[in-house]
Design a binder for these strands. Structure first.
Lengths: 161, 161
DNA sequence: CACATTTGATTGACGTGTCAATCATGTACC
DNA sequence: GGTACATGATTGACACGTCAATCAAATGTG
């Protein structure tokens, strides 16, 4: 194990590697943007709204403590707080005081929120199938799983949450 | 070819497919966020700044018409316009009137911008290697290329830009 | 009990992104 | 040359995200 070997692995990517990286990240961004855009067109929900409503829909009583919701969607609390405020303004959720701990608020999905989520869900899932699942062979889908695992391992190994 | 077959391919993804999808998109987002964050910490450039400076650095005279720049980075014009205004405020670029067509402005990288780009570049590329290239085997890197191509084909087939 | 500390959540400032509207210059056509 | 249209770019309004500061209720410790 020479210094040269060590150093080589720390250098910049090759042109090919960089091309593959750019293709990957730009395609992922585009996919994400396209799905968000369709969601918004079809249901007037943003991708963030959908994420929040999905988490609430899976919670008992369609309600969660703000902190539990933040953990469920893996968002920073201030991000959630801002988003919740906007969603409350549009009647998708409501904030209740939490009886057992007056610091914490509970976020509750409203009927209107549940209705919006239901009507968004099917077209959104269909879009995921069209633009992702059906674009790949079953073998490729398995490859994605492995790739994701490898990348995530590396991300987790390298510091921040 | 029955209706059943046709219909099946239009249904929602299975639980496994959905899990793979979520893993994929969340990992891609996280990678993107992590690289942006490192870039910002190490060089005080945002990922958008870097993209713009990279495009300018590759242009003759380190300058481009605003529309050409928009095409080079594949951004909407209004997005570019907003970003350019902010970058100009920080001295990274400058806007010159274009002599041959007074509608169009030219965006020029300043020396300060070039300096910032140079010092950001090496650490950023190293981060791409660490978090992406080195996380995958050469075979996996090839797989990424194929996956990207498949997804892009499907995206291109399905309407917008 | 009083006080410091921790915990749950919100706020404000500011950078970023999208969309629709606008503005100014260039071009075509009569 | 003058009017209509196309083109290059900017603007304003508003949604979204991050960071640091703040606030209030809960908890621990003397």
């Amino acid at each position: 194990m020479t210094n040269t070997t060590q150093r080589r692995s720390r250098q910049s990517p090759t042109a090919d590697e960089l091309r593959i990286w750019r293709g990957f990240i730009e395609t992922a961004r585009e996919l994400d943007a396209r799905l968000s855009s369709r969601l918004h067109d079809e249901s007037a929900l943003s991708s963030g709204d959908y994420t929040v409503l999905l988490a609430l829909s899976e919670a008992p009583g369609r309600r969660l403590r703000s902190s539990a919701l933040a953990k469920a969607v893996d968002w920073e609390r201030s991000r959630l707080s801002h988003h919740i405020r906007r969603m409350e303004g549009r009647g998708l959720i409501r904030r209740d005081d939490c009886a057992v701990d007056y610091r914490g608020a509970e976020v509750v999905m409203t009927d209107q929120g549940a209705q919006a989520f239901r009507s968004a869900s099917v077209p959104h899932l269909r879009a995921v199938r069209e633009l992702f699942v059906d674009a790949l062979t079953p073998e490729q889908l398995d490859q994605v799983e492995d790739l994701t695992a490898a990348l995530r391992t590396s991300l987790d190994a390298s510091a921040p949450a």
